[in-house]
């Protein structure tokens, strides 16, 4: 039994001469929150839609929950919130969820028993019996999330889930993702909002121009490039500065920067500064943000239109 919820060996999608996905290879571990990042037009939605048979890939090898990608029966165990989800305006939120459940093969009694819990989870109890046409963008996303969860999927795809949602709604969606993860579900989040993904994802892949250019656990991605920054009250005296620079430490005005993830190497620097009666204002540990990693990764790849 594979430990991967999604295992793409090779995925290619061409539209005429344009190659939207050029031989993508990707693994999404079971029970993880996986963030797929990329600028607009990178092919993120195309990738998800290919996995869900909404788009017919030009070439595709791989598995989804252990079955070949494209196997319809497997989709019973999958949930999906599309980007800019559009539900029939004449349906109520409750009917949208119910309809989604029926299409997934969930029995009416199960739908009924899960309905209130889901509505409560997405904070839509008070609006469930109102027509979708009266909903705000955030409400539509909440109902979209609920319909994606009605079949208690093993794997759930969220395509730009926080797009157009207010800050409170974003926090709620992050909480929901945490809840799903705690329940053992695999969550695949597609987003161009790096800070959003940074807060929830265990694994991250960066997609640019139809190619995966980085893919690693979040902790591994942010480990490289760690540094410590010491700031003094006033410029570092020249004789201390000279000594530090001889040891390969960067000094600029009142800032001393050590490119290391080993905190013990910082101690002698503090000692040297204190011995020279330099007052230390601040010591901080800096890790590269996902934004730094993303920008670094897409550098040289060319930027797609934002």
């Amino acid at each position: 039994m594979s430990d991967a919820a999604v295992e793409i060996e090779y995925l290619r999608k061409r539209y005429g001469r344009f190659e939207a996905l050029g031989g993508v290879s990707l693994t999404v571990p079971k029970g993880s929150v996986f963030g797929l990042l990329g600028p607009n037009g990178a092919g993120k939605s195309t990738l998800v839609k290919s996995l869900l048979t909404i788009i017919r890939p030009t070439e595709c090898r791989g598995t989804l929950l252990g079955a070949p990608i494209g196997d319809r029966k497997t989709l019973r165990r999958v949930g999906y919130l599309p980007e800019q989800a559009r539900f029939p305006e004449y349906l109520t939120g409750r009917q949208v969820i119910s309809y989604s459940g029926q299409l997934t093969g969930v029995s009416n009694s199960e739908i009924k028993s899960r309905m209130d819990g889901l509505l409560s989870l997405v904070g839509m109890q008070g609006w469930a019996d109102k027509a979708v046409s009266t909903y705000s963008k955030g409400m539509r996303q909440r109902i979209g999330l609920a319909q994606a969860m009605i079949n208690t999927p093993d794997l759930i795809f969220l395509d730009e889930p926080t797009d157009g949602v207010d800050p409170e709604g974003r926090i709620d969606i992050r909480r929901m993702i945490d809840t799903m993860k705690a329940a053992g579900q695999t969550v695949f989040v597609n987003s161009h909002l790096l800070s959003e993904v940074e807060q929830v994802a265990d694994y991250v892949a960066i997609l640019a121009r139809g190619q995966v250019i980085r893919s690693a656990p979040m902790s591994e991605l942010t480990r490289g490039g760690q540094r410590y920054v010491i700031r003094s009250s006033g410029p570092v005296p020249p004789f201390v500065r000279e000594k530090l620079e001889q040891n390969g430490i960067k000094v600029a005005g009142d800032t001393v920067t050590l490119e290391t993830d080993n905190v013990s190497t910082v101690q002698p620097v503090i000692d040297a500064l204190r011995t020279a009666n330099v007052l230390i204002r601040e010591i901080r540990e800096e890790k590269p943000s996902l934004e730094d990693i993303f920008l670094e990764a897409v550098k040289g790849q060319g930027r797609e239109a934002a």
């Binding site: 048979t53 909404i54 599309p82 800019q84 559009r86 029939p88 989604s100 299409l103 997934t104």
Partner: peptide, 15 residues
Amino acid sequence: MLEGSAGVTLSKPIS
């Protein structure tokens, strides 16, 4: 067949 409308239905286990 509008963007965002078909996706939900087509991602279901129905041919």
